[in-house]
Nucleic acid binder design. Structure first.
Lengths: 333, 333
DNA sequence: AACGTTACCGAAAACGTTCCCGGAAACCTT
DNA sequence: AAGGTTTCCGGGAACGTTTTCGGTAACGTT
């Protein structure tokens, strides 16, 4: 690989001058600059970002740590992040953790070693060691789709999961439903807990008592939803509605109902959470809670950018409002 | 940020010794090594990957350039790539190009500046300038889901799109269909062309002539599929089958048919291409052509790894076989 | 003609590492 | 006791840049 020295030698000039040509510094004659650029092209020269980063203490790199890119939920967030970040000259480095704590820790240390300028993260579960790692990081961080842990002065961008869950439940109860089941995600997940709380609290707020037999927790896929629905239905003949903690679970439930020939919404109402693309498919038309995914990504990106640029910037966390999207899977009872 | 010098000064020893502790070099007393590691922890020291990369001329970084992470097709490929690459100690840097030629070029130059060790790429369209950029790259490259361009001695990992399209068509024709429409992707895409050729050639091979009115090309989304299906159906009353160049288009077609009350497969057979998750949904059950997405990613990763490690390795391109997945959207006629 | 400006350039230090080379003890030999 | 080994450590160059500082020539000014 050709270096700045090579082109300097080629022209019999100093590296300083070549560097000046590169950074269009004013202290250089137009003529020599032109010659230099020519030689660079000829030698197939490309500046070395490592050397630059070493001097400037800046790599123009932002780490984006998320649980799973293949999850459409996150890939859309990621697109939002990337869109605004590349616009201002950053390269984003993904960290796909697959909800594996070790991979999370590995990514964080890698981020520090590689001198990334900032981090946008969605850790799955915050234990002691991970928290400590964040505290020692010395890199600006914003949390995404998750509140930042106490003991860490980092801003976050999130949707109000609790409120969203309450909205879903209010909708169902407002429609007259009294016996409402819940299909939840694994308990160790942060937002699983919030959505579950929304379910429980809203039930109580209306004088209803959640039936433990009508509650499952533990998955996040379509297959889980199918299985959960079958289990719940068999044990609860009087159920008229289901709140699923995410759309994939809801769709699994819908599938099982369709296979059993139980008509939706006539015999069973269901509402999901996330508003994935697939929820709007003609055969599904799921009533669900929407979050502005792309906007959330964009906002997080804007915040991290300012945190890096402005030394004194005191970033504010932001909550996005969830929204009820009414489609065809609920009916009055 | 603490550096190696800081910990050396703290202990009154030389940086060389500290470096030895870091790389567990044999020339160091166990005792001093222990002291060094302790001070490192206390000072919150992390090695600087930029400085290391500068010396070793290796960054342990692989670039993965793909059109769209949010596309489930690519995110699964990406997961395959990442799985094997992180296993052997690489970090993968995504380049989301959104099929934008400028973004592709930007990513390539960024990859070179950042001294990435290797690249796995899925460029959308190969023009003169992009090809030249690849030729000047001086970094090992493997092409993914696309054949490598002539004039570039790079291996590729792909599925035989042409053969897959032929298989889909053979299936339809074998079922007795004679009037078969085609819903295609934008013409400037490399694989769109191959799948289209498969359609045309198989028609001809059976003495059938493709009807220009029953062919659309130009989209890759569900919305496109819906629109294309409506257009084709209105102009071709005798059509009994549709081959859609990808599953999203097929699903769009299916949606339109469902809305119109045209029963599938009774009145219309349809087959797709890609075998996305969503194609197996209960309401869809699309007959389609599968590609081993994750395997393709893994294979590409393994190849790039060897190309980097073994100077003399002559990488072989690999074709994966497409597979016909029969579900419920085709019938004999 | 003497001076101050301006325009342009080079030398060298610095960024944080690694690694080669040499050297000083301390340990074995015989 | 002299020599040879081994063990451990420090000095300093190198990686490819940027940047500060200083310097030289050419210019304009009075």
């Amino acid at each position: 690989m050709a270096t700045i020295k090579d082109v300097a030698k080629e022209l019999g000039i100093s590296v300083s001058t070549v560097s000046r040509a590169l950074n269009n510094h004013p202290d250089i004659k137009e003529q020599t600059k032109k010659e230099i650029l020519e030689v660079m092209k000829r030698l197939n020269y490309t500046p070395n970002a490592l050397a630059r980063g070493l001097i400037h203490k800046k790599t123009n790199t932002i780490g984006l740590m998320i649980p799973d890119i293949a999850d459409p939920f996150f890939s859309e967030i990621a697109n939002g992040v990337e869109e605004v970040l590349t616009e201002v000259g950053y390269q984003v480095v993904y960290g796909n953790t697959m909800r594996n704590p070790d991979k999370e820790k590995l990514f964080l240390s890698s981020a520090k070693e590689r001198q990334m300028d900032g981090l946008i993260v969605t850790p799955n579960f915050m234990d002691e060691k991970l928290l400590e790692q964040f505290q020692r990081l010395q890199i600006p961080v914003v949390f995404l789709r998750r509140r930042s842990p106490e003991g860490l002065a980092a801003p976050f961008v999130d949707v109000d999961h609790y409120k969203g869950a309450c909205m879903a439940m209010e909708h169902l109860i407002g429609l007259g439903h009294r016996h409402i089941g819940f299909i939840g995600m694994p308990e160790l997940s942060f937002l699983a807990e919030l959505r579950y709380q929304g379910y429980v609290d809203t039930m109580h707020a209306h004088g209803l008592t959640p039936n433990p037999n009508a509650i499952t927790r533990g998955g996040r896929t379509i297959a889980h939803g199918r299985e959960a629905m079958s289990r719940i239905c068999e044990q609860n003949k009087d159920l008229t509605a289901i709140f699923a903690a995410n759309d994939l679970l809801a769709i699994g439930a819908l599938e099982w109902l369709a296979i059993q020939g139980i008509p939706v919404p006539e015999k069973m109402s269901v509402v999901g959470f996330d508003n994935l693309e697939v929820a709007s498919l003609h055969w599904i038309k799921l009533t669900t809670i929407a979050q502005p995914r792309k906007q959330m990504g964009e906002e997080a990106a804007r915040i991290i950018d300012r945190m890096i640029r402005e030394e004194t910037y005191q970033a504010q966390s932001v909550f996005f409002e969830p929204e009820l999207i009414q489609r065809n899977t609920c009916r009055e009872v």
